[in-house]
C-alpha cells in the first residue's frame, strides 16, 4: 500500500442517484425494489472508481490481497433522486501494522457528499485493508 498517499485529496466528481442502479442495489439484497426514497447507503465509495478516485490502483492494493474492514455513514440531510452531488474524496489515514501472519495495511478514506450550494448531506468513511 502506498503510505505516501495519506492526506491526498482527489479532484471532486459528481454523482446523481440512478433509479436503475438502485433497483439492482435493492434486488441484490433480496429486498423489495421500493424506490420511494434513495436507499440510505446507495452512495458508496465504489462509485468513485470510474470517476477518478480509483483507490485500489492509487493505493497499490492488489484485489486478491484486499479486504474490506468496515464503513461509516453520517447522514446530515436527505438525498433525492434529482440531487447531483459533488463528492470529495480524502485519503485520511494510511497505516502499516505488524499482524500475526505478516504486515497489514489500513486506509481510511472519507467521501464527503455535498449539494451544489455546498451543503454537506453525507459523509462516508470506508476502511480498506491489504494483507501481505
Amino acid at each position: 500500500m502506498n503510505l505516501d498517499m495519506q492526506g491526498h485529496v482527489y479532484a471532486p466528481f459528481k454523482v446523481k442517484p440512478d433509479p436503475a442502479l438502485a433497483e439492482k442495489f435493492l434486488r441484490g439484497q433480496g429486498a423489495e425494489a421500493d424506490l420511494s426514497t434513495v436507499p440510505p447507503t446507495y452512495m458508496i465509495f465504489l462509485r468513485g472508481e470510474t470517476r477518478g478516485a480509483d483507490l485500489f490502483a492509487d493505493l497499490g492494493i492488489p484485489r486478491q490481497k484486499a479486504l474490506h474492514g468496515g464503513q461509516r455513514y453520517e447522514w446530515f440531510g436527505p438525498i433525492g433522486w434529482d440531487d447531483e452531488l459533488d463528492v470529495t474524496v480524502t485519503l485520511e489515514t494510511v497505516t502499516e501494522k505488524q499482524g500475526k501472519g505478516g504486515k497489514i495495511w489500513f486506509a481510511d478514506v472519507a467521501f464527503d457528499y455535498a449539494r451544489a450550494d455546498g451543503t454537506r448531506v453525507l459523509r462516508e468513511i470506508t476502511r480498506l485493508i491489504e494483507r501481505e
Binding site: 442502479l21 438502485a22 433497483e23 439492482k24 442495489f25 435493492l26 434486488r27 441484490g28 439484497q29 433480496g30 458508496i44 465504489l46 462509485r47 472508481e49 470510474t50 484485489r63 486478491q64 484486499a66
Partner: peptide
C-alpha cells in the same frame, strides 16, 4: 445472482 446484482448496483468491479 444477488451478488451480481449488488455488484452492478454499486458499480463494484471487483471480480471476487
Amino acid at each position: 445472482q444477488h451478488l451480481a446484482d449488488f455488484s452492478e448496483g454499486t458499480e463494484d468491479p471487483n471480480p471476487i
